[in-house]
């Protein structure tokens, strides 16, 4: 019995293998493999149009990818059972669902379908976040609308919380509150969280892991701490440009012939040899700098 229990709890809450997708022939996802550890908080980062939302939608079964598999708690994402759906909460970017209901009606309606729905939590959070209960969702501001969706997602007490740019419409105070709530969920209840964002500071504040999507590819997947330690910017003057390491996350040639590269420690934790050359310069990279260097 215990063996069975352990096996079910060790199943990745969310995983994809060999995910490919294209819109009108333009590739959006190009072979993505990704799995979330139970209880982890994975921040998905990338530029606009990098494929983050498409990846998230494919992961939770809202999109049929051209190729590849996606599973949620071991079930095919496109054919989830009611039990698995009950463990999952997803909030899309700029949610607009059920605009004809009031916030109170919407939560009442949704709550009837989730076995672990926490009515008192929903009510408390509505009051704390000052959501007008009897106003139509259509008439709420984008920030208020986003917060209603977050309450909806959190009140179902999910084991897996998937948020697509949850902080986009929120003011800094509301953003902090959301991040705190996410951290509490992950820390105290072991909820697995996947969220996409442009805001790197949010990632640093709450994520345990980071995944960087660029042009439909997953070019980086690591823990946040490891990412900060593992990468740096290497600048080489023109005379040393030939010594640039072949493997680099980004490579930029400047007008004077010098080059900048984002390089990674090798398996023994050493920087590439070129970084030790006379005249070479190394700069530590914060997450934001790393993001900009790679994405540019």
């Amino acid at each position: 019995m215990n063996a069975v229990l352990r096996e079910t709890t060790m199943v990745a809450p969310l995983s994809v293998q060999g995910l490919h997708h294209a819109y009108e022939g333009n590739p959006v996802l190009a072979g993505i493999d990704l799995a979330l550890e139970p209880g982890s908080v994975l921040g998905l980062i990338g530029r606009n149009g990098a494929g983050k939302s498409t990846l998230i939608r494919a992961m939770v079964g809202l999109l049929e990818p051209s190729e590849g598999k996606a599973s949620v708690f071991g079930e095919p994402a496109l054919r989830l059972s009611d039990a698995t759906k009950g463990r999952l909460s997803y909030v899309p970017q700029q949610p607009e669902a059920l605009a004809w209901l009031t916030a109170e009606q919407m939560l009442d309606y949704i709550g009837r379908f989730y076995p672990r729905w926490d009515r008192s939590f929903a009510k408390q959070l509505m009051q704390r976040w000052q959501i007008p209960q009897n106003r139509l969702l259509a008439k709420l501001s984008p920030g208020e609308r986003q917060r209603v969706e977050l309450i909806r997602a959190l009140a179902s007490q999910p084991d897996l919380l998937v948020l697509d740019e949850p902080a986009a419409a929120l003011d800094p105070v509301a953003r902090r509150e959301l991040l705190r709530e996410v951290a509490v969920r992950a820390g105290e209840f072991g909820t697995t969280v996947l969220f996409s964002t442009h805001i790197v500071s949010d990632l640093e504040r709450v994520a345990s892991d980071i995944a960087f999507v660029h042009e439909g590819r997953l070019i980086l997947r690591s823990t946040v701490d490891d990412t900060k330690e593992r990468f740096m910017r290497l600048w080489l003057p023109p005379r040393l440009s030939a010594a640039a390491p072949e493997i680099a996350l980004s490579h930029r040639q400047h007008g004077d012939g010098s080059i900048s590269l984002v390089v990674e420690r090798d398996s023994e934790g050493q920087w590439p040899q070129a970084s030790h050359l006379q005249g070479a310069r190394i700069d530590p990279l914060g997450l934001e700098d790393l993001f900009v260097e790679i994405a540019e």
């Binding site: 939608r57 970017q93 607009e96 379908f113």
Partner: peptide, 19 residues
Amino acid sequence: RKTNTELPLLALMPGLGDA
């Protein structure tokens, strides 16, 4: 055509039955 309205809600709502 919209990915942020009722489609995700209905797709992931438990209790409606099999596909």
